[in-house]
Write a protein that binds this DNA or RNA. Structure first.
Lengths: 188, 188, 188, 188
DNA sequence: AATGAATGAGTATTCATTCAT
DNA sequence: TATGAATGAATACTCATTCAT
């Protein structure tokens, strides 16, 4: 809100960046790619973002907001089990995208780790938020090992996203999704 | 053997490439980086590899051979459970490296997916070999769902590697490793 | 007109390319050479031309336009004989340049033939236009063998340009020019 | 004889160079190309030729010897007219090669002119020998303008070779060949 | 004489970033 | 604010030439 101008170009750039960075990867994506996807002239990008890094940072933030809204929707469900299973279900629904490009959060985290700038901390924070929410769900289920379970669930998702992407097989995500749902049920 | 020359420079280059690609990522790594790590003049690299892609391919192959030797060592253990748990144990032992750079196989697979060349198929094959071996272990344990279990185990490892790397916390790998060992025991 | 920007840098680059390619040859000419001749920073060349090939293509087009304007001037003369002889005369006038670098069209055609790109077709088209014009002049003189005569005249020019260049002797062009003028007169 | 060793590698290299330089052009041809064509290891080339230039020079000489043998064969014919027409006839016979690669002498002369080394003088000398022979034939026909006629004939050949090559049309060489034969007859 | 290997200078191309208007 | 144009540093790749054996 605060940063958006009448034309909303800043948001459009950040949104386009999320999409293009997911599809092409950070290193393969040029500023021109993002500018084109946002339908903004290249030279104009620098009015909104001083550097490419700042644009990536904005993309990470935008992706974080997206995850927050996903969580907010899940919160409407009555029990933690249902919430977690709904999350798993949403992953399975995205299986075709995962097969093409992997998980947006995970691929970003993986790539940003190799860079000198501090952007890896930004994506770690986003992933940490989701992890924290998961932990709270397991805790609400009365589990003492909520932290461990949250880590296991997040790892399972990140890992199966990578496998689904590597083998280009959406069925892998589906199979693992069902297994995770059964697993969640078994924890009650 | 077949490709090694007296000085073994070709192998030295492939080996250095495995290391540097893991540490810096594919896109951030220049030919000069690899040449320097192998203590070989840049121009000389092209005597052994026609393109950067071919050098990466050789690095993938070298990494594949490394995994094969790891598997060969595991094979000496008497039962499939012991073999699988020893594999998990070796992951935990590598936790500091994972915290710094992630899993070499996984980060490579993730990055190569974004490229146009066919190298993503090469790393997929390497990962597929390990996956197949895991499946055979679960099958030897009498599990009908060996394939599903193998996928779950591989995903857990890839995912926890990514989390360990993202949060720069080797303890995550340790925690998940113990959980996986208990899980394997529970399947018998 | 259509492609020229305010500063006309694109045209300046194409023009400089025509000159430098003629003087140094296609293979010996670097992009830096052309950029320097046009007084344009190397990196900036790529704003106007995606590849070296495209710049060469623009140079060929520019040379083609030059030939068109030469023809347009010749068209003002009353009879085809006069036009053809004026063309021969213009060749003789350029004899010092030919002694130094050969015919721009011919040397370009000769060099481009050795390349894989389709640029040899572009220069062939330019030469074909001039050849067609010559043929129309001979036809206007009532000659049934206009095509054959046009080919003979063009060949004579290309050949004497090569000899003049090889022996570095402008007098050769002069001598052959006079012979060709007499020959044209004899055809009436 | 003097330079040939038992194995005749030097001659084989020069011969291969003539062929490859004609087909690929001087600048596009690497030493490795020639070495491969001569079935000689690259490193070994430098035992016979100190530089690439010296190898090209040897190729020019070899081509010169070839032209000498062609002339020697023509000398057996009784009259100068017959000799010249036989020369023209041999050009026509080579029309397919000319369509593909142009005249070996001419393309070499054209390319070498752009270089700093003195090789352009070497090929000029070879062409000069042939030109001198032509001139002697016209003189033997009693023509006072023998020099001019020789230049015209050589230019016609070089020019039609270039056109035949540029338009990739062997018929051009054929057409011009017939015209030149009639022309020679008309000079008697 | 022979040869696989080594070397370094040179070239096209990309792209984040800056500038002028 | 907006934008086309400018810039230069970086990178993969080629190849004549040299070296060690």
């Amino acid at each position: 809100m605060t940063n958006s101008t009448r034309s909303g170009k800043r948001d459009r750039l950040a949104g386009a960046a999320v999409r293009v960075l997911h599809e092409q990867g950070v290193e393969k994506t040029t500023l021109a790619d993002i500018a084109r996807a946002a339908d903004v002239p290249v030279g104009n990008v620098y009015y909104y973002f001083k550097t490419k890094d700042q644009l990536i940072e904005a993309a990470i933030a935008a992706h974080g907001h997206h995850l927050e809204s996903v969580i907010a929707t899940l919160e409407r469900l009555p029990t933690p089990q249902e919430r977690l299973k709904a999350l798993v279900h949403s992953w399975v629904e995205q299986r075709d995208l995962a097969a093409k490009y992997g998980c947006p959060t995970g691929t970003l985290a993986s790539e940003l780790d190799k860079r000198d700038d501090g952007l890896d901390r930004a994506i770690a924070k986003v992933m940490g938020e989701l992890l924290g929410w998961m932990e709270r769900q397991f805790a609400a289920m009365g589990r003492e090992d909520a932290r461990e379970l949250a880590v296991a669930l997040m790892a399972a998702y990140q890992g199966i996203s990578l496998l689904t992407n590597t083998f280009r097989d959406p069925a892998l995500m589906e199979m693992e999704g069902h297994r995770l749902e059964r697993w969640i049920d078994s924890l009650a």
